[in-house]
Measured scan of single mutants.
Amino acid sequence: MDVFMKGLSKAKEGVVAAAEKTKQGVAEAAGKTKEGVLYVGSKTKEGVVHGVATVAEKTKEQVTNVGGAVVTGVTAVAQKTVEGAGSIAAATGFVKKDQLGKNEEGAPQEGILEDMPVDPDNEAYEMPSEEGYQDYEPEA
């Protein structure tokens, strides 16, 4: 019985440690998101679009440190934060509304985080759909 109880105690310690790591990862992701939003706020009209992409990228980098179902929630929060940063930029006159959601080359930025393969159960990952990809044929 002692062996059984000791095993359960060790398992509990492992769960607590994993929860603490997840909590730490979420806190880091939130900190990076805040950094990115402050970065966007300090940019001029020309830099705002690039700044919004930076927020998304920093958040995406930190999301990889967070495991399990938390990833889905962090990704949703990050996307809403990026959308909010863009709205703030438009409201303050840093950028025109028609410039939001495009990178410096004018290509749409939507789907940055949505296409990231995420499995809350950590069982399997699927690649994003290939609808947006084109076949590449090298020139002879």
Rank of each mutant, 00 (worst) to 15 (best):
N103T: 08
T92V: 12
Q79F: 05
D119P: 07
A90P: 02
A30V: 13
A19G: 02
G41K: 02
V82L: 12
T44N: 01
G7K: 08
G132M: 13
A90Q: 14
K45H: 02
K32W: 15
T81K: 02
Y39T: 06
A91G: 06
T59H: 02
V66G: 02
D2A: 01
V77Q: 02
M127Q: 09
A76R: 10
E130M: 08
V82A: 12
T75I: 07
D115K: 08
L100E: 08
D121V: 05
Y39N: 04
G14R: 11
I112S: 13
E61D: 08
A27K: 10
E46S: 13
E20S: 03
A90H: 10
Q134P: 09
V37T: 01
L113H: 11
E114A: 03
A19E: 00
A89H: 04
V15W: 07
D2P: 01
G73D: 02
K80P: 02
E105H: 01
M1W: 00
E35Q: 05
Q24A: 09
F94H: 05
A76H: 09
Q109P: 07
E83F: 09
L100M: 06
G25W: 06
A56I: 14
G68Q: 04
N65C: 09
G41W: 08
F4R: 00
Q134F: 09
I88F: 03
L113Q: 13
T81W: 04
K23L: 14
K12G: 02
G93W: 11
K32T: 02
G67C: 11
K80S: 06
A17H: 07
K97N: 12
G132W: 13
V63A: 04
E137R: 08
T64D: 04
A53V: 14
E57V: 08
T92G: 09
P120D: 05
N122T: 09
Y125G: 10
P128Q: 07
I112W: 07
G132K: 06
E83M: 11
A17K: 11
P108N: 11
G25D: 03
S42N: 14
A91I: 06
M5S: 03
A107H: 06
E139Y: 12
F4A: 00
N122S: 08
Q109D: 11
V63W: 15
V26C: 11
I112V: 12
H50M: 14
M127K: 13
S87E: 08
K23N: 01
K43F: 13
T92W: 15
G41P: 00
M127W: 05
V74M: 13
I112N: 09
A11R: 00
K10W: 04
V48L: 13
V66R: 04
Y39G: 03
T33V: 14
T44P: 01
K97R: 13
V3H: 03
A29H: 02
A11E: 00
G84H: 06
Y133L: 14
A17Y: 03
E114D: 15
V71D: 01
E57M: 05
P117C: 10
K34H: 03
Q109V: 07
H50G: 06
V37E: 00
A89Y: 10
D2Y: 08
K21I: 12
A17V: 09
I88Q: 03
K10H: 04
T72D: 10
P128Y: 03
P117I: 05
Q24E: 06
Q79H: 07
A140Y: 05
F94E: 03
A17P: 00
E46H: 06
E28I: 05
G51E: 01
Q134I: 08
P108I: 04
A124S: 09
D135L: 10
H50P: 01
A76W: 14
E13W: 04
K43L: 14
E123K: 11
E126H: 11
E123Q: 12
T92Q: 03
M5L: 00
P138D: 07
N65E: 10
T33L: 06
Q62K: 07
G47T: 15
A29E: 00
E28S: 09
K34R: 04
G84I: 13
T33Y: 02
L38Q: 07
V118F: 11
A78H: 04
E130T: 06
E137P: 04
A107S: 10
V74G: 02
V82H: 04
V77N: 01
V63R: 02
A17G: 04
D119T: 10
E61S: 06
K6A: 06
V55Y: 14
G93H: 06
A69N: 05
Q24T: 14
Q79A: 08
A30K: 02
E57L: 09
E35G: 05
G93D: 04
G31K: 12
Q79C: 09
T33E: 00
A78E: 02
K45A: 12
A78R: 07
A30E: 00
E20F: 14
V15Q: 00
Q99M: 11
E131T: 10
Q79R: 09
K34G: 02
E104S: 09
S129P: 11
S129E: 10
E46N: 14
K96P: 04
V37G: 01
A69E: 02
G41N: 03
K12I: 03
E131Q: 09
L38S: 03
G7P: 01
G51Q: 08
L113T: 08
S9V: 08
S129K: 04
